[in-house]
Design a protein around this nucleic acid. Structure first.
Length: 1166
RNA sequence: ACCCGGGUGGUGGAACUGGUAGACACGCAGGACUUAAAAUCCUGUUCGCUGUAAGGCGAGUGACGGUUCAAUUCCGUUCCCGGGUACCA
């Protein structure tokens, strides 16, 4: 009886199906275990050998857990909404639903061939209305929630409305909404209220930028844009603002970070998510623009005045200080604030409480002076003089002080105590007028200089930095070119250059900007002022600063940042070294360890400490603040496409009205054309009768809209690919439920996914979104846990092994004739690399002519006019290793039928040629690349199952290497695994004799001289232990080799005993289920082997009492000695030193030390 | 450019917490069985030197250096390959 895998596998796959062997119940006394695969997108190409890697791993683990007594949920489904089906529809006119269903059928057939233990009754398809009904429902749950900053969780939006009606938004501040009181809220009309609520909703709509291609009339994804033009057709692409839906994932940034602590993902996976969220703690600092009255006249140029400033600004050489000079002075100022004079107190009170339109500080240090009151916006100083100011020496001092302050550019107003106390209003009026006047004239001056509009709002550049300690090393600033501020500050002289640069940046796609390595940028002509030392800092724009991150502006510290350093070099900006010897002038050093130099009040401080001090000072002086920044932005949640979930939203007068739950699902309507709608909307926008609908009962109709009809327009975009996949793991628990997305009992029972297996490509997208959805559902009380996946195992990518050959297309001319003819030559790898690629064209022509053409055309003489090299991929099916199967290759395509092949030994192989037939090899060029149809390097798992059987295929995929590792596919080793299964079979059956297994009991267990004597039991238990350990740690490749060792050893001792073999079969079931079932039933067992109980390892069968120790001298093994395991150090030393070989190596010297590690080794140190 | 992986025989890989490097396979070579083939079985297979042989000696886990009685494993520098990415301040 031989191993007929085709029959066996068919038999058992039918058997499992008919007996519902893999049916899983939600009711069980067993502990549960949930194993999940990332479900596939059913592409038209079908499965290739890379897909099942993770599926096999999860199948093995599921079966293993089932044997171990768990109720295991191991479902499979299809992520069936998506762009490829729609593209295909556009090209062929076939409905995506049709192609999708066909593809799913193919996938299922392929999967079933491999023998997975899925409960297909639980299959989900995200494109089924019964499924996406609940995707829409969850979307509405998210839409109808807001993130409560106090409770740090999602709360139904109704609670927020109530809160607004009672107390305004005082407790729920929002950076896009100005504060309002309860009364104000109640006075807002419905539309205004809805606009405000939209700023709080977790799913919200706003205008966002998309890639717009005018010619195609459609919106493109980032990767459909290449070099600023559309990938298809090469049409120009511009940024366009469109209404988009978003999920407010940024609100969950901290909880998504914290959640990582509670899950078992690989460190690199967690790192990727952390990087994506990108939390950083730093400072936001305002650098005032250098627009003080003092500099009103020299605002514009980068010319002489700025170089003059620079000389003045050399650190340590008495450079100008406009604000705090040193710690002591600032401490004094602070102390003064606590003991104001009566007049000062009155003034401070008035300046603070009366709205005079200018902000003042009191007791503010400037250089060595302490100013009573100062307005930093307009550089206005107010001094209140007590009686002692009349003394001559004080008057003199005041004059010096005033001169210096005026020199610095301040305007000074002096009041006496009496003027304040007696006529406060008058004094305030004077101050206000003066301040207004300065502001006005400054604006006029700027306008005059630039011919552009004056600055708006705060005159400063807000930067975000994670290194406030380096603030004295700021030598320039860089703004993102698209910031509005750039337009306000650019100088007249630089306007042209700036505008040109911005135009250049706009013409570039995001991808280009990212990939750019060379330094580009442009000076704006404007300067900012370092708030701590008053240095003037030139402001540049450059594409390496992104508008979307932080404030879109950076303070550049070239001595400490590589990019800043290169930028400074490129633009010849002098570099201030604040880190002493850490900076060598050649390369930036981002150290955090340096002691600061050239850093004003930070001199001599450690960088770590300096950060904190700078932060304190920034906050005290109100020119900066601590800021936690996230890199992550809110997740775009709509696509202008057809094949996705429609939004259950109707727009009316700019207000998004949600459908009621009982109106779901909102089914995707049929369309005839898949092209874009007007204005680049999705195809749905073309179906006017679908788009235009009456507003839901009791909703829009009851609101007083200007539209009398109560009609609205449906949202015409659809949800993105990740919508359905964000919660599918829940639906598997209760897949047919028509009343809820997942019964709470079911989700409580199955709880988190215990093991999730999939590729790293979903590291940040899918995994982050499903974690978000889970958290929202948890917050709203729909499920009982907030992390979906307890453990994540990443499978590596299986790459294709491509085979290429070099082709020369020759242009030939027969000597006596005029016309040309074309001829293709194909070169074996060695010939090409030895004789061709290194040689000159002339030499190549020569060789071709003399060595080949003379053989190919023995009767005519040709001249080589040109040779055009190219490479082509050969279908890997026609290549054996690297050797081309020439006959098969000729049959592949008509064009190769008469191909002329130059073989490895430089001989010419061509058909129909008697004198040139030979056995020479033709070698192809091997290459590892993505597995893809166009490289002819895909391998269909179904083919391998047909050829070797599913069990062989499963074990071979595992045997290839660790699941986590990426590796190129190579079919050639599969024979070994197949041989192993046949060898296993032969433990039970002989080809001629038939069954040879026996019911004989294993020989009785004995111990002789401390050794277990029963070889069969020893082999079995050794195997049990190793298989269990390896399976538990997902080391499936070593488990396969353990099985091989086990079968080899059992064969060696000719063990055919049922009692031993049965246990081996149970161990093997997860890996090779078909053969295990078959042999199990052949041994007269009833029922599925999956319901057998897993063998229990017993140590007594494998314990040994002695070990063959390697003895090394100075780390080199010189001898082996068998020693009892319980022997002690003294005894060991005795025996070892008595050993002849050791004696020889010691050469009479006394050992320094003898290291004895029990059960490992012994090392003698000489 | 940055981040994360990874470099071990002809090949895929093993060596789990530092303890005999190369398990298990593929391939290759030789042999047995066979009229022959397939299938199966046996032997050998890191490299170099040496020996008739058993064996012996030396080198060896990308490279260089360090820690240690002992390093594929830990540390530092460096080169190469793969994957990811949003130039994230």
């Amino acid at each position: 009886m031989e191993y007929k895998f085709t029959e066996i596998e068919k038999k058992w796959q039918d058997n499992w199906k008919n007996n519902h062997t893999y049916k899983v119940s939600n009711l069980s006394d067993k502990p549960k275990y949930y194993v999940l695969d990332m479900f596939p997108y059913p592409s038209g190409a079908g499965l290739h050998v890379g897909h099942p890697l993770g599926y096999i791993a999860s199948d093995i683990y599921s079966r293993y857990k089932r044997l171990k007594g768990f109720n295991v949920l191991h479902p499979m489904g299809f992520d069936s909404f998506g762009l490829p089906a729609e593209q295909y529809a556009i090209e062929t006119g076939q409905h995506p639903a049709t192609t999708t269903n066909n593809n799913i059928a193919t996938f299922k057939a392929q999967l079933d061939k491999i023998g997975f233990c899925y409960d297909w009754d639980r299959e989900v398809r995200t494109s089924d209305a019964a499924y996406y009904k609940w995707t829409q429902w969850i979307f509405l749950e998210i839409f109808n929630s807001y993130f409560d900053t106090k409770q740090n969780k999602a709360i139904p939006i109704a609670a927020l409305e109530k809160q607004f009606a009672n107390e305004g938004n005082i407790n729920q501040p929002n950076e896009n909404i100005t504060g309002f009181s309860a009364d104000e809220w109640n006075s807002f009309d419905f539309k205004k209220q809805q606009e405000i609520l939209m700023e709080y909703r977790l799913a919200f709509s706003k205008y966002g930028e998309v890639n717009w291609c005018e010619v195609l009339g459609t919106v493109l994804a980032n990767d459909e844009v290449v070099n600023g033009v559309s990938e298809r057709g090469g049409h120009p692409v511009v940024k366009k603002k469109m209404r988009q839906w978003y999920l407010r994932i940024t609100k969950y940034a901290d909880r998504l970070l914290e959640g990582l602590e509670t899950v078992d993902f690989s460190d690199s996976m967690k790192e990727m998510q952390r990087n994506w969220i990108g939390k950083s703690v730093g400072a936001e600092i305002v650098f005032p623009l250098s627009n003080s009255p003092r500099r009103g006249e020299d605002l514009a140029p980068a010319g002489s005045s700025s170089s003059q400033i620079k000389e003045e600004s050399v650190p340590g050489s008495g450079y100008a200080k406009y604000t705090v000079d040193n710690v002591m002075n600032f401490e004094n100022a602070k102390a003064n604030r606590k003991i104001p004079t009566e007049a000062e107190a009155i003034m401070w009170n008035a300046l603070r409480s009366r709205n005079i339109g200018h902000k003042f500080r009191r007791q503010h240090p400037i250089e060595n002076y302490i100013i009573d009151f100062i307005c930093l916006d307009v550089w206005l100083v107010i001094e209140i003089d007590g009686g002692y100011h009349n003394k001559p020496e004080q008057k003199n001092a005041d004059e010096i002080r005033d001169t210096r302050l005026k020199e610095l550019g301040f305007t000074i107003l002096r009041f006496t105590n009496e003027e304040i106390i007696g006529n406060l209003d008058n004094a305030l009026k004077t101050i206000q007028d003066k301040a207004d006047e300065i502001k006005q004239s400054a604006a006029e001056k700027r306008a005059a200089v630039r011919g552009s509009s004056p600055l708006q709002g705060e005159a400063g550049v807000r930067v975000y930095t994670t290194r406030p300690d380096t603030i004295f090393g700021v030598d320039f600033m860089v703004l993102a070119p698209e910031l509005n501020l750039v337009q306000q500050i650019k100088s007249a002289e630089q306007t042209k250059a700036v505008d040109e640069y911005i135009a250049y940046v706009k013409s570039r796609s995001d991808v280009d900007r990212m990939a750019e390595k060379k330094i580009t940028g442009c000076f704006t002509g404007a300067y900012a002022v370092n708030p701590f030392d008053g240095r003037e800092i030139p402001i540049y724009i450059s594409e390496y600063v992104l508008a979307g991150y932080g404030t879109g502006a950076i303070m550049a510290v070239p001595c400490g940042d590589e990019r800043d350093f290169k930028f400074a070099q490129h633009f010849n900006i002098p570099i201030t070294n604040i880190i002493g010897s850490y900076f060598n002038g050649e390369v930036a050093n981002a150290t955090k360890e340096a002691t600061l130099e050239n850093s004003g009040f930070l001199n001599g401080m450690q960088m770590m400490d300096a950060s904190e001090l700078v932060l304190q000072k920034l906050e005290e002086q109100g020119i900066g603040k601590r800021k936690v920044n996230y890199r992550m932005r809110d997740a775009g949640f709509s696509r202008q496409r057809y094949w996705g979930e429609p939004f259950p939203i109707i727009w009316s007068d700019g207000v998004a009205i949600p459908l009621d739950a009982d109106e779901l699902p909102l089914e995707l309507p049929h369309v005839d054309k898949y092209g874009p709608g007007p204005e680049g909307e999705g195809p749905l926008a073309n179906i006017t009768e679908w788009v235009s609908v009456p507003l839901p009962e009791g909703k829009g109709n009851s609101y007083q809209f200007p539209q009398p009809s109560g009609w609205g327009k449906r949202e015409t975009s659809t949800m993105p690919g990740y919508a359905g996949s964000s919660w599918y793991f829940l639906r598997y628990m209760d897949p047919q439920n028509a009343d809820t997305f997942c019964n709470r009992k079911a989700s409580d029972y199955w709880n988190q996914v215990d093991l999730y297996i999939g590729g790293t490509e979903h590291a940040v997208g899918h995994l982050l979104y499903s974690r978000l959805w889970t958290k929202v559902l948890f917050d709203l009380g729909h499920i009982g846990y907030e992390e979906p996946f307890k453990k994540l195992l990443n499978q590596g990518m299986i790459q294709g092994s491509s085979r290429r050959i070099v082709r020369y297309t020759l242009l030939l001319k027969e000597e006596t004739k005029e016309e040309f003819r074309e001829l293709n030559l194909y070169f074996s790898l060695g010939v090409f690399s030895q004789f061709f690629s290194p040689k000159s064209k002339a030499e190549q022509f020569n060789k071709i002519q003399n060595d080949y053409l003379s053989k190919i055309f023995p009767y005519s003489k040709y001249q080589v006019e040109e040779n055009i090299p190219s490479t082509l991929h050969v279908d890997v099916r026609y290549v054996n290793g690297v050797e081309l199967e020439i006959e098969n290759f000729r049959k592949w395509k008509p064009e190769f039928e008469s191909a002329i092949l130059i073989c490895e030994d430089d001989s010419v192989n061509m058909p129909f040629s008697n004198d040139l037939k030979n056995s020479s090899k033709f070698i192809c060029d091997p290459l590892t690349e993505k597995m893809s149809k166009r490289y002819f390097n895909t391998v269909d798992p179904a083919d391998l199952c047909d050829q070797f059987g599913a069990d062989t295929f499963r074990m071979y995929e595992m045997f290839l290497g660790p699941v986590e590792a990426s590796k190129p596919w190579d079919t050639k080793g599969i024979e070994g695994v197949h041989r192993f299964l046949r060898k296993l079979w032969r433990l039970f059956f002989d080809e001629i004799k038939g069954p040879i297994w026996t019911a004989a009991a294993p020989s009785p267990f004995e111990r002789a001289g401390g050794e277990a004597t029963n070889a069969e039991l020893k082999i079995l238990h050794k195997t049990i232990k190793k298989i269990e350990e390896d399976t538990e740690r997902f080391s499936f490749n070593t488990a396969v080799s353990t099985f091989m060792i086990c079968v080899n050893e059992l064969s060696d001792i000719k063990c055919h005993k049922k009692e031993i073999l049965e246990n081996v079969l149970i161990l093997l079931t997860p890996y090779a289920p078909h053969i295990a079932e078959e042999l199990w039933s052949q041994l007269n067992n009833s029922g599925s082997i999956l319901d057998a109980s897993y063998p229990v390892f017993e140590n007594k069968y494998v314990t040994e009492s002695s070990k063959e120790y390697p003895i090394s001298i100075n780390g080199k093994v010189r001898a082996n000695i068998n020693l009892a395991l319980d022997i002690d150090q003294t005894k060991v030393e005795e025996i070892v030193l008595a050993n002849e070989t050791i004696q020889k190596w010691l050469e009479g010297k006394a050992p320094k030390k003898i290291i004895y590690v029990r059960n490992k080794m012994i090392n003698v140190v000489v």
